[in-house]
Every structure is written in C-alpha cells, then in structure tokens.
C-alpha cells in the first residue's frame, strides 16, 4: 500500500485552489454588499431612526428618545391592543407548530411509505399554499358566513345544528378560525420539507434496527425523529417568522381592526392601522416603533431557536 499524503488543511478555511488577495475578494463582494445595504440595511436603519423622532405628518420633528416606545406601553389604544395582538401571534405560532409537527409530519411519513400517488398527494396538500392567503381568507369568510355560508348549512343538514355558530362573530371561535385556516394553508409546506428529509435518511439504518427487533415506533423515535431534527428546526424558524408576520389571513377574516372586538388582532394589523389608518400626525413615529420591536423580537427568538436546535443536534450525533 503506497502512502497517501493528505494535504493538511487548516481548520476553518476551505481550499478552493484559487488564491485571492483580500482586496480582490472585497471587489467581488461589493455588488452584493451594495444591494444589501441599499435595499435591506438602509430601510431597516431608517425605520429604526424614525422611531426615535416626533413626526407631524411626514415632517420630522425633534428627537424624542424612546418616547414612541413608551407610548406603545402606556397609552390607549396601544396599551390594550399590543398585548392582545401579541398573544394572538403566539397562538398562531403554537397552533401552526402543533398542526405541522403532528398532521404535517404524519402525512409526510405516510406519503414516504406509499410509492404510488405520492406526487399526486404531495401536490394536493401543497395546493392551498400556492393560492394567495388573501384569497384563502376571503373564501373561508364566505364559507363561515352565518347568513349564506355552507359550513353552518351542512352542520344543520346533518343534524349537528347546535354546533352551527357565527364562527367569525364570536371572539372565542374567531381566533381559532384564523389559527386553523393558517395551519390548513401551510400544511403542504412541512409535508414537502419533511418528505425531502425522510428521503435523505439511509434505508440501511432502518433495516438494521428492524433486524435487531426494533418495533416501528422504536425505529421512529430512535432513528427517524433524530435525523429529522435539522428539518424540524428549519420548519420551526420559518413557522415562527410566518406566524409573527401574519397579515393577509387575519386581515381577510377580521378586517384591519381585528374584528370582532379585537379578537383576531395581530401585530401586523396593529402596525397597519397605526401607519395607514390612524390619521394620527405621529403615525410614522409610533408605527416605526412597532416595526422595530417586532423585528427585534422575531430576530432574537429566531436566533434562539436556531441556537437551541444546533445544540440539540450536536448532542445527538
């Protein structure tokens, strides 16, 4: 056996065979950096700076420090609306997580097992995801209308008349309609992602465990689930961002005020109302403060979920 010399590669650097000076490297990075600065960094920083000023229409007044943020927690309607909307965003996230990691994962596993019609069902489950959420929300609001909607008519038709109710008119049910409709629309997304991840798990491991006498559930717990963790992490972060920024479905179902009586209000609706409908002369200041808070929260928690998932993965493998 001849000796094979492996080139020593310093940890942390990738050998590509191309040597670039730092300056030349910068030149290649520059176009992307310029685009990023103009279209992402600049608007973000402007919104941040706007939130520290007092505004009169679109004329910027004096620097007011964190007063706009204090307003959000001390003055009506924000004092009441902000926690109310925020809790609804969290409900949306929890609801979506529950649906995606039970029904979504279950469907993906089932689809992975069956060979036939796999593509067909994948497409079917993904279809609602391809329709605009505004349209989805509008369709559901028609279906649930207490006057003309088919949902209550069907319930009455099959003798379940007691269950028929003003789904979107009752604050107790309205928010759950938003949660379920959102989850319903997005169910195709985990089916696709988990499907791809399941396809990436080597069959041999599963077979070996099976020969060793592991039951189907044991194999799922000990092999499939841990190997799916990276996918679950990705789905969680994206779901979190989606839930925190939810706008079109709540808007279509409950209008910009989060009707009835704020029962379907979410953070983006609060932002929308403040920025575009309040008619307040300081609309820019207050709405920028909401936007900044929302961004910081989404950014922070997303980082946290990512960090947590990475740590769990490292422990497993």
């Amino acid at each position: 056996m001849s000796a094979i010399t492996t080139p020593r590669v310093r940890r942390g650097t990738v050998r590509t065979g191309i040597t670039l000076s730092r300056r030349a490297g910068m030149v290649f990075v520059l176009p992307a950096l310029a685009l990023f600065s103009i279209f992402i960094a600049y608007p973000l920083l402007t919104a941040l700076s706007y939130s520290f000023f007092d505004w009169t229409g679109i004329v910027r007044g004096g620097f007011v420090g964190v007063e706009n943020y204090v307003t959000l927690f001390t003055r009506l309607p924000y004092r009441d609306d902000l926690p109310n909307a925020f809790v609804h965003n969290l409900l949306l996230f929890v609801g979506a997580m529950v649906f995606q990691n039970t029904i979504g994962l279950g469907l993906a596993t089932l689809l992975h097992r069956i060979g036939r019609f796999k593509r067909f069902f994948q497409t079917m489950y993904t279809l609602p995801y391809l329709v605009s959420p505004l349209v989805i929300g509008y369709l559901w609001s028609l279906m649930l209308s207490p006057l003309f909607g088919p949902v209550n008519a069907v319930l009455r038709g099959i003798g379940l008349g007691e269950l028929a109710q003003p789904w979107l008119g009752n604050p107790q049910t309205a928010i759950w309609v938003v949660v379920v409709v959102t989850a319903w629309q997005w169910i195709g997304f985990p089916v696709l992602l988990y499907g791809a991840a399941l396809g990436g798990i080597p069959q041999e491991i599963d077979e070996a465990a099976s020969i060793d006498g592991a039951s189907a559930w044991q194999r799922f717990r000990a092999i499939t689930l841990p190997m799916l963790l990276p996918a679950i992490g990705t789905v969680s972060v994206l779901t979190f961002i989606g839930a925190m920024e939810a706008f079109p479905i709540p808007y279509a179902l409950g209008g910009s005020q989060g009707n009835p009586a704020g029962a379907t209000d979410v953070m983006s609706l609060l932002f929308y109302r403040t920025a575009f409908e309040s008619g307040s002369s300081n609309a820019i200041g207050t709405s920028s403060a909401i936007a900044t808070l929302l961004f910081l929260f989404i950014f922070g928690i997303s980082m946290l979920i990512t960090w947590f998932m990475r740590r769990t993965e490292r422990k497993l493998f």
Partner: peptide, 21 residues
Amino acid sequence: LTPDVVGVSYTDSQIQFTSGQ
C-alpha cells in the same frame, strides 16, 4: 337584527337588504 349579527359582514348586510331578506 339577524341572530349572530356580529358574524355578519357589511357586504353581507347590503345583500340582505337588496335581496329582500
């Protein structure tokens, strides 16, 4: 008013009136 009036949207109510319901 219609029972469950809080579930009725503004456009629904216009249809209720114009359709004679």
